[in-house]
Structures are given as C-alpha cells and as structure tokens.
Amino acid sequence: MALRLALVLTAAPAGTRVRAFVALTKPRIIELLLVTTVPTMIVAERGLPSVWLMINTVLGGTLAAGGANAFNMYIDRDIDAIMNRTKNRPLVTGEIQPREALVVAAVIETLAFVWLWVFVNLLSAVLAVGACAFYVIVYTIWLKRTSTQNIVIGGAAGAAPVLIGWSSVTNSVGWAALILFGVIFFWTPPHFWALAIKYEDDYSAADVPMMPVVQGHRSTAIQMTAYSVVVWALTLAFWVVADMGWIYLLVAMGLGVAFTGGAVRLMTLTDRQQQQSESLRYFAFSITHLTLLFAALAADQLIGWGI
C-alpha cells in the first residue's frame, strides 16, 4: 500500500494531487453550505458572534461537508464515469485511488467531529456528523438510485448547516432555526431539479431516477413551483418567528416573486431546448436567491431596524 501510494505520489505532480484532493471535497457545494451558516449565527447571536467561534464553526462545517462529499464521490464513482458533467472527477480520471478517497473522507469527518466538539460544542458536532451520515446512507446509498424523491429527502443533509450555525451560538435548536432548515429543505428540490432538467440525458444514461427523467419536465416544473411557494411562505414565516426587520422582509418578498416566477416560466415552456437553457438559468438564480436571502438576514441584524 505504502509503495503504491509512493508510486502514485511520484507519478503525479504535487499541485495536481492537491487540486484533485480539493476537488474530492466538492468545494463549490461547501461554499454554498457555508453561505447559510454565518448569517444564521448572526441572527442567533442578534449581532456579530465572536470571530473565533465563527472561524471554528466554518472550519468544522467545511471539514464535515468535505468528508461527506468525498464519501459520496467514492460511492458514486461508477455513475460519475458515465455522466458528462462528472466524468472529470478525480476518482474517474484516476488522479486519486478509491481507497485513498475513502481514507481521506473518514479522516476529514473524524477531524470535523473532534474539531466541532472541542472548539464549538457537542450538539454542533453531532449535527454535523449526523448530516454526513444522512447524506451518505439515506441519500447516496439508499435513495439516489432507487427513488424520484431522492433529492427531496436527501435535501435534509444540505439544510443541516443552519442548525449547526444556530447551535454553535445557542447550544440548542430553536423554532427560528427549524424554519431556516425548512427554507433550505424546500429550496433544494427546485434548485437541483433545474440542474437535472439540463443534464437529463446524463442521469438517464447513468440509470439514476431523477424526477425530470422519470416524470418529465412539465410534472417536475409543477412540483418546482409548489416547492418555491413553500419556500416563499417559510421565508415570510421566519420574519415573524425570528422578529426580523424590514430589510429582510423586502428582500425575501422580492426573491420569492422571482423564485416562484422562474418556476412558473419553466412550467409554461414546451420546447425541450428552451426548457434546458431556462433551467440552467433557474439553477444559477437559485444559488443567487439563497445567497441574497442569507445576506439580507445578516444585513438586517447588523444594520438594525432603521427603515
């Protein structure tokens, strides 16, 4: 094993190897997860929490999400090789060996648990590792290849960072945190199905029963619209429950109109190519939607109630 590792290490330049290991953790997804963590901490604190707590929570969260993503890539390496979108992932190209990926994933996840426990609190550590277990076992191993509801249920793992952010400050999980969890949970299906519409052929080739592949575009777009309305309602409920200010309310209202409007537009399109290009636009917007919503959350708390 050591000899083989040494051979691989000498075969590939160090920079390439490092890049491959970073890619193994899916940094773009981690980025999106963390966008929700810090603003949630600001709301929980009703101001700016200590910088060290923020750094430690973000670092622990990054490690936990990175470990979960590495496990996911290890398990999905067979279908990743078939899909155009994922065929350049390091486990498919051979830059990383499957066993290395598994070891790295386990080490990162353990480190995340210890880090969060020592520097944040036990509840946050348990939530982070619980989310990883859910993502790997419930989503990746069980539902992804067997159910059209895969991303709906699996979305719970992606919504966990708000609970971790909240618990890192309060050492508990309150109603406000649960509503934010709901916002991300119901935001995930429209966000991910938009991508699945675009890469429908990929999923079909890999035999993965994503909603647009099994039920078709129109049925998916109808469900996306329904979920976007729920997201909208929950963002407004959060305004009441968390006693937020006008900055947040105005942004949430505007984003809700745009998010639901986009889904409705997708529902009315009939041409496949148009649907696919529009869905990619909607996917990009869904990321902007979440980022702006949480930025508004933070701004509202930091700027105050002035309006």
């Binding site: 279908i79 067997t146 159910s147 059209t148 035999d207 592949v213």
Partner: peptide
C-alpha cells in the same frame, strides 16, 4: 421507490442498456 422501479422496468423492456 415505485415510480423509479416502473421507470427502470420500462427501460429494461425497451432494451435500454443497464448501467
């Protein structure tokens, strides 16, 4: 899993290659 199972059965019957 029912709708995914039906979908997969349909694909198999249509002779589409399994992954």
């Amino acid at each position: 899993v029912s709708s995914a199972t039906q979908w997969r059965r349909g694909r198999r019957l249509a002779g589409m290659a399994k992954v």
